[in-house]
Nucleic acid binder design. Sequence first.
DNA 1: ATATAGTGTGTCAGATTTACACCATTAAAT
DNA 2: ATTTAATGGTGTAAATCTGACACACTATAT
Lengths: 234, 234
Amino acid sequence: MEVKLPTFDSVFSIDCVIFGFEAGELKILLIERNEEPFKDWLALPGYIVEQDESIDNAAERILYELTGLRDLHMQQFHTFGEVNRHPQGRVITVAYYALIRINGQKEVKPVTQYAKSAFWHPVNDLPKLAFDHSEIFTTGFNKIKRRLNYQPIAFELLPEKFTLTQLQSLYEAVMNKKLDKRNFRKKMLSYGFLKELDEKQKGVSYRAAKLYKFDRRKYTKIFQNDLIADKAGV
Amino acid sequence: MEVKLPTFDSVFSIDCVIFGFEAGELKILLIERNEEPFKDWLALPGYIVEQDESIDNAAERILYELTGLRDLHMQQFHTFGEVNRHPQGRVITVAYYALIRINGQKEVKPVTQYAKSAFWHPVNDLPKLAFDHSEIFTTGFNKIKRRLNYQPIAFELLPEKFTLTQLQSLYEAVMNKKLDKRNFRKKMLSYGFLKELDEKQKGVSYRAAKLYKFDRRKYTKIFQNDLIADKAGV
DNA sequence: ATATAGTGTGTCAGATTTACACCATTAAAT
DNA sequence: ATTTAATGGTGTAAATCTGACACACTATAT
């Protein structure tokens, strides 16, 4: 069964690669599609941009409708414009990523009928995705891998208060390699934008680690000279 | 006089920021528009994407039509999708940059009527541009500033054979700061991807400098481990 | 009390980065 | 022939950063 697209000459869409970090694993949000084409396939959350909304606003709206998530800091990273990337017509898609704290989020679930479900899936074991979404994911993943080294994006994935070990294991998960504990701590602390709290980790059956917090004010003060304002997050 | 846009529901366009280096200055290509809106204004080369061409192909075609330049390595860098960025309707534009050798290029000139003329203009002294093109330029400029430090893009701006002083002055022009000559040379040569030629500079009234050539084969060999394949040029 | 599991810490060697100044070469001017 | 003007080309030492590496401490569970 084929459902016709609206009769636009050109259609824009947004696709979102939403990263989260849980149980030591990096994950992304997928949805199960409820519409042709690719009905029942897994896909990145994405949909068509309306005439009267900016693409940044569209990205927020669409993500909300498909997953129930709001107020993420979405960042555009690439636009995919092959002629035949959509089987039913010409659809150019602008891809966005965002990083969020999974813990403490209410469960993700679609608020429209376009998706049957939404869920977190580890990036290391992704199934085949609808359209060219596997390629979109890979491009986005490479982007954040690089960005991790010069932008404070790690902190968006962690709870507000975190231990240095958690921070390290996030870096290890994204970069997919082991880091030296002492060197990692020395370096992170040397930047001066981590604030040591008077609190300790709770509920562990071993020596509790100190908790830290990312101090964005200090970060921008320290790095303001290096920062080149740029739509694409530098 | 207002010319109506074609009755697309949505229109895609491409805008190009084409960098060149001449007389120690970084320049970009501008056109003088020959159509409403913004008739007679200066603008980035840009036009509408056809239904049956990928955006990458469209970028090449459009640049050719407006400037006569062909076969540049165009790189997408950002998509601009504010609702009112175009006064006559909804136009989302994908911005590309490219770097080229000005010297030795035949003169740039439009092959369609959409532009009256095309010419190089120093980036340090840009006039107000049509649409949001000033913003597009700035975003693109910041992109290449960063990229200069981890991608071999400088060599695309220089003639095939160049002196180390030329290379340095290009870096200085892009980064807008002075570099130390000895350190710059030591570092560049240490990478091992510059090939020293048996030739010297000609036609100067002082000691002629050695000429070098960028060896792309060596470059990729040396850096293949660091490279993360990525649509956006890493 | 002791076993367990993860926390938290310092040093040294090697590599990289930065700062810094003078003689060499060429063509043009005298 | 000599001088001048302009740029080419080179080395070293100090400071900083990076990477490798191992063990005692602490909180809890039993």
